[in-house]
C-alpha cells in the first residue's frame, strides 16, 4: 500500500504553517522527513496518521493494505507512549485486544514481535524497569504486532542518548532487511535520515514546503557508522538546511 499526499496545506487561524505538499511514499521504503524546527514535520506525520486534519489537500491510501494488517497506519512516538501500568507483554496485547485477538493467537503474535525486537526475556517487565532504548523497542514491537502497512515514526530516537541511538538504528536496519516495511520517519537528526532513509525529504521553514527530495541508492544493509558516502549526503543536506535552520532559530515563537 502506498501513501500519496496531494496538495497538503495548513494554517492555524491566519498563520500559514504548510503549503502545497505533494509526496509519494512507496511500499517497502523508508521516507525520512527532515527540516528546521517548526517546519511542521510532526504535523505532517499526524496528517498522514489521521490524528489531525489538514486545511487543504488530501492524504490518500493507494491500494489495499496487506492481508492480516490490523492497523494500516501505525505510530511510533518519540516518548514511547507505553502504558506504565502494563507489562511489556500487556502493552503489546493492548493493541490486539480490541481486534479480538486473545489467548493463543495473541501469544503467537507477541512472542514473534518480542523475538524480532530481542525482548523475549522482558515480557513481564514494567516500563519503569526498562531503559529508554528498551522502551522504544517495546514500542516498535507493539507497532509490528498490528502488522502495519505504513509505520509513522515521530522522532523515535530523539529521546535516547547517542550510543543507544546507534544500536537502535542497527536494529531498525536489521528489521527492515529481514522483512522490508514502509515507513515515514520524521527526524531533525540528519545522521539518522541518511542512515535509514531511501528518500530524504527536506522541508523549508514556515510555511513548510518541500525544498528537495534526496534519494539515497545505497542499500540500507550496506550503510555503516560514519560511512563516507553518507557523510557526503549529510553534508549536502546540511548545506540545504543551514540558512533555514538559522532563520528558524531566530524566529519568535508565534503560537
Amino acid at each position: 500500500m502506498d501513501i500519496r499526499l496531494d496538495g497538503i496545506g495548513h494554517a492555524y487561524d491566519d498563520f500559514e504553517v504548510m503549503r502545497d505538499i505533494d509526496l509519494e511514499i512507496p511500499t517497502g521504503q523508508i521516507v525520512c522527513i527532515v527540516g528546521p524546527s517548526g517546519c511542521g514535520k510532526s504535523t505532517l506525520l499526524r496528517f498522514i496518521g489521521g490524528l489531525e486534519q489538514p486545511k487543504k489537500g488530501r492524504v490518500l491510501q493507494v491500494g489495499a493494505p496487506p492481508a492480516g494488517c490490523l492497523n494500516p497506519l501505525t505510530y511510533i512516538f518519540q516518548d514511547f507512549a507505553l502504558l506504565p501500568w502494563r507489562t511489556v507483554w500487556g502493552n503489546i496485547s493492548l493493541v490486539l485486544e480490541d481486534h479480538g485477538i486473545r489467548g493463543a493467537a495473541a501469544k503467537d503474535i507477541i512472542d514473534d514481535v518480542l523475538a524480532r525486537t530481542k525482548l523475549s526475556d522482558f515480557a513481564e517487565a514494567l516500563p519503569k524497569q526498562l531503559s529508554g532504548g528498551m522502551k522504544q523497542r517495546v514500542a516498535i514491537a507493539r507497532a509490528l504486532a498490528v502488522k502495519p502497512a505504513v509505520m509513522l515514526m515521530d522522532e523515535p530516537l530523539s529521546a535516547l542518548d547517542s550510543q543507544t541511538r546507534e544500536l537502535l538504528m542497527d536494529d531498525l536496519v536489521d528489521l527492515w532487511t529481514r522483512q522490508p516495511f514502509t515507513a515515514v520517519y520524521v527526524t531533525h537528526n540528519l545522521a539518522e535520515a541518511v542512515r535509514l532513509g531511501h528518500k530524504v525529504v527536506v522541508l523549508s521553514r514556515r510555511p513548510g514546503q518541500i525544498r528537495e527530495v534526496v534519494t539515497i541508492d545505497k542499500p540500507l544493509a550496506a550503510r555503516e557508522f560514519s560511512d563516507p558516502d553518507l557523510d557526503r549526503y549529510q553534508k549536502d543536506l546540511w548545506h540545504l538546511m543551514r540558512e533555514e535552520a538559522r532563520a528558524a532559530d531566530a524566529e519568535l515563537i508565534h503560537v
Binding site: 490524528l51 490490523l70 492497523n71 505510530y75 512516538f77 516518548d79 507512549a81 493493541v95 480490541d98 507493539r142
Partner: peptide, 21 residues
C-alpha cells in the same frame, strides 16, 4: 498523559477501550 490517549487512537482502540484501559 495525552500522548497515551493519542497512542490508543493511533492504534484504532475503541472509545470505551481508551477510557477503560
Amino acid at each position: 498523559d495525552r500522548t497515551l490517549i493519542r497512542m490508543g487512537q493511533s492504534f484504532g482502540l475503541s472509545w470505551w477501550s481508551i477510557v477503560r484501559k
